[in-house]
Design a protein around this nucleic acid. Structure first.
Lengths: 277, 277
DNA sequence: GTGCAGCGATACCCCACGGGTATCGATCCC
DNA sequence: GGGATCGATACCCGTGGGGTATCGCTGCAC
């Protein structure tokens, strides 16, 4: 299945084989064997091009999920074994720089529980958490609706908040008590920045490219962009930035999420602590 | 991993090996190999007993999910290949006897869509649907909250309804416009029936054992039990049964559910048809 | 139109790993 | 203390997954 996913992604046996670290002929045979075992043609191959069949694209989706599940099983087991020897505990994934006071309160509350284990923090970029939870690099995550997809996970809502627009200090709008969303999206000279997609490319459009929070805040301070963010981010704003509430922006809900089948004692404890905040 | 799950369930190498259709020594070695590869002790073995370690129970949960995912990948791919040759389409799992008019409307509505494929119905018993969705025997299911667990699936709510108590025709209560829940649970001589658990055993307590709907209805008609059910079941009641609303019973929500990673065109079409009902 | 480059399939060889049988060693029970 | 039970070890075998060399097909270039 790993082999199939590699070929389906590259659509090229030679490159896929190289990527997998094996030779091309065994890869061809492995795929053919898989096709015979499943009784399904997965790839349409001419000597010039390889394309996915309908069954192949089904298997691509399913195989990715299955491989993630297998990887998760291995990783979580390894970690559980380490925990027995006293080292690591549960891994909590959270977006770098988001919900930091909530996170601090959560960690404090959990640490006060009688059977608390070590909580390793895994700070990650936009949209990474889903992957980390699926492949077992994390056991539990803090996600932000509606930005992060929570489908497939069990969740508990922790907090809902409005959003603010982050502007350079001294910007004319900063004297206002609040601004409408429409006005923010059309601020002259202060476009919203563009974030990289998971594959690393940037969407088209106006606005500067920002790779992480630090770059973004710098861009705002320089008067090259503005940004809409949950209001809890105000606590971490630098002096050269200001925030104004945007009442009609969608509200953001912070949730704690975990894979439904892996509610271990440690995860359950964290969730309990979180819901009691 | 299959091997490990077998041993972890039986807690006995000999029986597990027999169950797997292999000899005991290769099974012992396979487990030991797995332990070395994961760097974790999974089983505590004395020559008299085998017990799961902490890491072992983590792996048991994770491995079950992973094996289901692999099985699902194989099954769904096989089915997708058959669909290409014109045979089968999408498999919808639903509790036998529940939501039948809703189901009929759903199938009609979906069949009217331009790119509709064949919908195979999989009628199953209580609590089976979750398993079927996970291991790929079904692609989409109709579930009933709060009875069925929907965690780990994407869902859309279709309908919410109250519940009624089903009684033998002519029972004194049938003249009432509605009855409180407390009164139903203490009806003299008409206890609620006991359903088998997933492992086939019955919970303790009063009330007759019922294996399926037919048995249950028979028991009610004979005056040996009563039953609380969604009010839509009234449409299918036999003449010798009657139903009375129970206003304070929890409401039942029928949802359509599917595994989040496998929203194929066919599943998406069904969901669309369902939400438009 | 012919030659070449690119790419997947085939042929053939080899070793490692998964499986089987026989047996050992430990532990509990009578 | 002897037997029964059960997992581990020792040893053997065959298959299957991997490697190298090569073929056959198909565009494209000149």
């Amino acid at each position: 299945m790993r082999y199939f996913v590699a070929v389906a992604e590259e659509l090229h046996f030679g490159r896929a084989a190289q990527w997998l670290g094996i030779a091309q002929p065994p890869l061809s045979r492995a795929i053919r064997r898989l096709e015979r075992r499943l009784g399904a043609q997965l790839l349409e191959r001419t000597s010039r091009a390889v394309t996915l069949t309908e069954a192949g694209s089904v298997l691509l989706r399913e195989a990715r999920a299955a491989l993630d599940a297998v990887e998760a099983a291995e990783r979580r087991t390894r970690r559980a074994a380490l925990a027995a020897t006293g080292h690591a505990g549960v891994v909590l994934a959270t977006k770098a720089g988001a919900s930091s006071e909530l996170l601090a309160k959560l960690l404090d509350a959990y640490a006060a529980e009688p059977d608390a284990v070590t909580v390793d923090l895994l700070l990650c970029g936009i949209g990474e958490q889903e992957r980390l939870l699926r492949d077992g690099r994390a056991d539990v995550a803090l996600l932000h609706r509606p930005f992060d997809a929570t489908s497939g996970f069990d969740t508990e809502e922790l907090r809902t908040e409005g959003q603010v627009v982050v502007l350079p200090a001294g910007h004319p709008l900063t004297v206002r008590a609040h601004v409408p969303l429409a006005e923010v999206t059309e601020l002259p000279g202060l476009p919203l920045p563009r974030w990289p997609r998971p594959d690393g490319t940037y969407p088209d459009g106006p606005g500067p490219q920002a790779r992480d929070h630090a770059q973004l805040l710098q861009l705002i301070a320089l008067g090259r962009a503005c940004w809409i963010a949950p209001e809890s981010c105000r606590a971490q704003l630098r002096d050269d930035l200001a925030a104004v509430p945007v009442l009609d922006a969608p509200t953001v809900t912070t949730v704690i999420a975990w894979p439904p089948h892996s509610r271990s004692r440690a995860v359950a404890g964290l969730v309990r602590a979180a819901t009691r905040l």
